[in-house]
C-alpha cells in the first residue's frame, strides 16, 4: 500500500477523533506529573489541523503534513506544540516531491520526525516522553519491509505502557523526579493515538 493524500488527511481526522474522545484521560495523565493541560492542548491543536486540512486542496502528502505541522506549532500552546509540530514538519520535508508515499519513504519520514523531536526537545529515549513511543515505532518500521498495522498497534501500545516504569528526566514531569514513576507519560499516550489512527488508516486501505 502507498499513503496518498486522502490517507494522510484521514490519518489526521482519526487522530483528532481519538484525542477528542480521550481528552479528559490525557489531561488526567498530565495532572499527576504535569500541569493538566495536555488533553486540552492536543484537542485544540488537532481540531484546528482538521479545519485547516478540510478547507484546501492538496497535491502531495508532504503539503498535508506541512500544514498540520504549522497548525500544531501555533495552536497547541504547551511543549507538545513545538514537538509534534517539528515532528510533522520534518516528516513533510523527508517525503517531499512524491505525490504518494511508499513504505520505504514513510519509514524515512518517521525517522526524520523522531530526529526532529529529539533535536527540539534536546532529549533521547528513556526520559519518559513521547520519544519512548516514537523511537520503538521507528525501530519497528525499520525491521519490517511493508506496513503491518496489527503489529504497529501492539508495538506502540506496549511502548506507551512501558513509559510507566520510567522516571522522567525531561519536560515538566522531570520536576516530580521519582514520583513520576508509575504513571503513563501524557505525550506517550497521545503518540499512541497517533499510531493507532495510522494503523486504522492502513487496515482500511488493505480492504
Amino acid at each position: 500500500m502507498e499513503i496518498k493524500v486522502e490517507d494522510a488527511i484521514k490519518w489526521f481526522e482519526k487522530i483528532n477523533e481519538k484525542i477528542k474522545l480521550n481528552k479528559e484521560y490525557l489531561t488526567s495523565l498530565d495532572q499527576v506529573i504535569g500541569d493538566s493541560d495536555h488533553g486540552i492542548n492536543m484537542a485544540r491543536g488537532f481540531e484546528e489541523v482538521v479545519n485547516k486540512l478540510s478547507a484546501k486542496e492538496y497535491g502531495t502528502v508532504s503539503e498535508v503534513l506541512k500544514d498540520a505541522a504549522m497548525t500544531l506549532m501555533s495552536k497547541v500552546g504547551g511543549a507538545s506544540g513545538p514537538l509534534f509540530g517539528t515532528a510533522f514538519l520534518r516528516f513533510s520535508t523527508a517525503v517531499k516531491v512524491k505525490e504518494s508515499v511508499d513504505f520505504e519513504t514513510f519509514t524515512l519520514g518517521l525517522e526524520s520526525a523522531l530526529e526532529g523531536v529529539k533535536h527540539r526537545g534536546k532529549s533521547t529515549a528513556g526520559e519518559k516522553t513521547m520519544i519512548d513511543v516514537w523511537s520503538p515505532v521507528v525501530d519497528f518500521f525499520k525491521r519490517e519491509n511493508d506496513f503491518q498495522p496489527d503489529e504497529l498497534l501492539y508495538e506502540s501500545r506496549t511502548a506507551m505502557e512501558n513509559t510507566k516504569e520510567i522516571m522522567a528526566t525531561k519536560g515538566r514531569a522531570s520536576y516530580f523526579k521519582e514520583n513520576s514513576i508509575g504513571h503513563i507519560d501524557p505525550g506517550a499516550a497521545s503518540s499512541y493515538y497517533i499510531f493507532e489512527a495510522l494503523a486504522e488508516v492502513l487496515q482500511e486501505g488493505e480492504k
Binding site: M73, S80, P82, G121
Partner: peptide
C-alpha cells in the same frame, strides 16, 4: 515550551 518556541 518557551525555549522550544523561541528556537522555532
Amino acid at each position: 515550551s518557551a525555549k522550544m518556541n523561541a528556537e522555532i
